[in-house]
Design a protein around this nucleic acid. Sequence first.
DNA 1: AGATAATAGAAAATCGATATTATTAAACAT
DNA 2: ATGTTTAATAATATCGATTTTCTATTATCT
Lengths: 226, 226
Amino acid sequence: MAIKMHTDPAQEPSATQRAYLAIRRMILIGDLPPGEKLKIEKLRSILEMGGSPIREALTLLVSDLLVERLDQRGFRTAEISPSNFAEILNLRCHLEEMAFRESLSNADHAWEDKLVITHHRMMREPRTNVERFEELHKTFHMNLLSACHSPVLLKFCNQLYDLNIRYRYLAGQALDYSKRDIGKEHTDIMNAAVDRDADAACRMLLDHYRNTGAFLEKHFTTEAAE
Amino acid sequence: MAIKMHTDPAQEPSATQRAYLAIRRMILIGDLPPGEKLKIEKLRSILEMGGSPIREALTLLVSDLLVERLDQRGFRTAEISPSNFAEILNLRCHLEEMAFRESLSNADHAWEDKLVITHHRMMREPRTNVERFEELHKTFHMNLLSACHSPVLLKFCNQLYDLNIRYRYLAGQALDYSKRDIGKEHTDIMNAAVDRDADAACRMLLDHYRNTGAFLEKHFTTEAAE
DNA sequence: AGATAATAGAAAATCGATATTATTAAACAT
DNA sequence: ATGTTTAATAATATCGATTTTCTATTATCT
């Protein structure tokens, strides 16, 4: 009757994992603003755990470029800048195109199904729950690339995606989806992907990113001028 | 008479930093073979420090893809495989080309000087001290890219370079530089770079990588068949 | 015998305390 | 007054010990 404990797949995550996810989320949604000092003691009291898992989580976030480690002076959230934003956008376009083309060339039936499902879920999700929507949005975009057989490339894309999402949150969500028909853009990309039309799909995907990018860039530069 | 302690720039590195460099070196040169379990207690006794800096160093190495973290079962060195090798090589070619072209388009006089100097030092260094030579070799290659204004891209290139170097060490140094005239290849690349001939320089750089890659690939596949 | 469960041992993860190091504030000298 | 040294404070980095989790072995049951 008792559950086999040593094979139970739903084990609760380690303190390090919890800290990692919690701090990462706080940085991405802008709860911890750019350049903010991350004091161990403060995070300890918020997350209710010892210093070790906190430090380890922060170290993991350093590799994600979301946190900076200052020699013997602790950690802080990564700074933002227009040039960093432009860099992320540009790299993202290059790497995602590479991954997307390889993904399409390997794409099979199961991949197609998965893509359709995630697209459907994203379209159905109301925009009221921003974090939930962003989660599904990311899943959709990563699924476009998921048939690419290069784990390292996918890791880079994933990282860059998160860095970009952070800028999106910092700019404020509402602004983003005002003029354009984002839903149609996604659907068009998906259809081209399903048709295995790599050129069209890539063109639309990069336009999708660059349009959002241009919008955000404008936002950040006017913001900075205030 | 006493040195001003609080402004002394030559402070000794932190335990974490020492552990990071030491373990990284052991993995790169093959001292810690692929898939090796990394027991904290053992590393503690080798490096003579507590568990915390060891764990932090290992966490840093996870982001470098040199170490894998297993949920609640500690750390091990990253596995190797022919497909991983091919992936690294391919990605490296793409990203370095991108970085190299941007570097060349920004290259100024100071960059040129630095490149010539590092090339000279590499050529002068006897092959007897392998680690020292590899250090200079890496410096030369990274300097080719150094005028690229994308820190993230450079970070990726640097990471991929290290992953590749590891395969080189594992294959055994001596084999690498037997038939080809590696010195000439480097000189040709440098000259094309100094001439700002991006197409020729990139072609030669990628040939340089792919030739070494093909050689190593052969080595690994025959190795695996034994 | 073969499989499942209990147990002992080893290792990892985490905690709380201590030692280091940086930062701030105050005292001192020029 | 200004800049430099000294002292106090705060925060980080590290250690050693404890708790939790995994792993391997032995015992138990069908």
